[in-house]
Simulated assay, not measured.
Amino acid sequence: MKFRIIRLVLIFIFMSPICIAQEGLPIYSDYLTDNYYLIHPSMAGAANCAKLRLTARQQWLGQDEAPALMTASVNGRIGESPSAVGAIFYADKNGYHSQNGAYATYAHHLMFSRNEIDLNMLSFGLSAGFVQYRLDESAFINSGFDPIISGIQQSSPNFNMDFGMSYHLINAYAHFTVKNLLKNDGINNDIEITSNLRRYLLSVGNVFKTRREGLTLEPSILYQYREGTRESTIDVNFKAYQDFEKAKMWLGLSYRQSLDGAEYLDGSGVSSQRSMYITPIMGVNYKQFMFAYNYTYQANSIVFNNGGFHQFTLGYNFNCRKVKYECDCPAVN
Score class of each variant (00 low, 15 high):
residue 273 Q to G: 05
residue 215 L to I: 15
residue 229 T to P: 05
residue 206 N to M: 10
residue 228 G to F: 11
residue 313 T to Y: 05
residue 153 Q to T: 05
residue 214 G to M: 06
residue 168 H to I: 00
residue 109 H to P: 05
residue 162 D to C: 02
residue 269 G to S: 02
residue 269 G to D: 03
residue 188 N to R: 14
residue 256 R to G: 03
residue 73 S to A: 15
residue 206 N to R: 13
residue 297 Y to I: 15
residue 319 N to L: 11
residue 37 Y to M: 06
residue 305 N to A: 15
residue 126 L to F: 15
residue 165 M to V: 12
residue 262 A to T: 09
residue 291 F to A: 15
residue 226 R to F: 06
residue 294 N to I: 02
residue 307 G to H: 07
residue 166 S to H: 01
residue 82 P to V: 00
residue 32 L to M: 15
residue 161 M to I: 13
residue 307 G to N: 12
residue 168 H to S: 00
residue 130 F to M: 14
residue 256 R to F: 03
residue 57 R to N: 11
residue 179 K to L: 07
residue 31 Y to P: 02
residue 320 C to S: 11
residue 274 R to P: 00
residue 155 S to I: 05
residue 193 I to T: 06
residue 224 Q to L: 12
residue 235 D to W: 10
residue 106 Y to R: 01
residue 6 I to D: 13
residue 31 Y to S: 05
residue 47 A to N: 02
residue 329 C to F: 04
residue 49 C to M: 01
residue 258 S to Y: 03
residue 99 Q to H: 06
residue 119 L to R: 01
residue 197 L to E: 14
residue 230 R to Q: 14
residue 153 Q to N: 00
residue 24 G to D: 11
residue 161 M to S: 11
residue 164 G to A: 06
residue 84 A to Y: 03
residue 42 S to A: 15
residue 121 M to Q: 15
residue 285 N to A: 07
residue 66 A to H: 13
residue 58 Q to L: 02
residue 217 L to V: 13
residue 67 P to H: 02
residue 205 G to R: 10
residue 302 I to A: 12
residue 118 D to W: 03
residue 263 E to V: 06
residue 184 N to R: 11
residue 255 Y to G: 12
residue 281 I to E: 03
residue 290 M to L: 14
residue 169 L to R: 14
residue 240 A to P: 06
residue 81 S to Y: 02
residue 19 C to R: 12
residue 1 M to N: 07
residue 294 N to F: 07
residue 31 Y to R: 09
residue 121 M to V: 12
residue 190 D to M: 08
residue 33 T to V: 00
residue 135 L to Q: 03
residue 137 E to Q: 14
residue 196 N to I: 14
residue 208 F to Q: 11
residue 20 I to V: 10
residue 110 L to I: 14
residue 79 G to P: 12
residue 283 G to A: 07
residue 167 Y to L: 09
residue 8 L to T: 12
residue 267 G to M: 07
residue 98 S to C: 10
residue 45 G to H: 08
residue 332 V to R: 08
residue 100 N to E: 13
residue 212 R to Q: 09
residue 35 N to L: 02
residue 292 A to K: 04
residue 47 A to D: 00
residue 291 F to Y: 13
residue 294 N to C: 05
residue 39 I to S: 07
residue 143 S to N: 06
residue 12 F to M: 13
residue 318 F to E: 13
residue 239 K to S: 00
residue 325 Y to E: 01
residue 166 S to T: 01
residue 284 V to G: 04
residue 127 S to F: 00
residue 36 Y to F: 10
residue 239 K to E: 00
residue 143 S to Q: 05
residue 197 L to C: 10
residue 329 C to N: 15
residue 273 Q to H: 07
residue 277 Y to I: 08
residue 130 F to C: 10
residue 225 Y to S: 01
residue 111 M to C: 04
residue 58 Q to W: 01
residue 279 T to G: 12
residue 22 Q to R: 14
residue 283 G to I: 04
residue 20 I to D: 07
residue 279 T to V: 14
residue 310 H to T: 11
residue 61 L to H: 05
residue 206 N to Y: 15
residue 12 F to K: 07
residue 151 G to E: 04
residue 184 N to L: 11
residue 66 A to M: 13
residue 120 N to V: 08
residue 144 G to F: 01
residue 161 M to Y: 05
residue 129 G to A: 08
residue 211 R to L: 12
residue 69 L to S: 09
residue 237 N to I: 06
residue 25 L to Q: 12
residue 43 M to F: 11
residue 209 K to W: 02
residue 158 N to L: 11
residue 35 N to T: 01
residue 8 L to D: 15
residue 139 A to F: 08
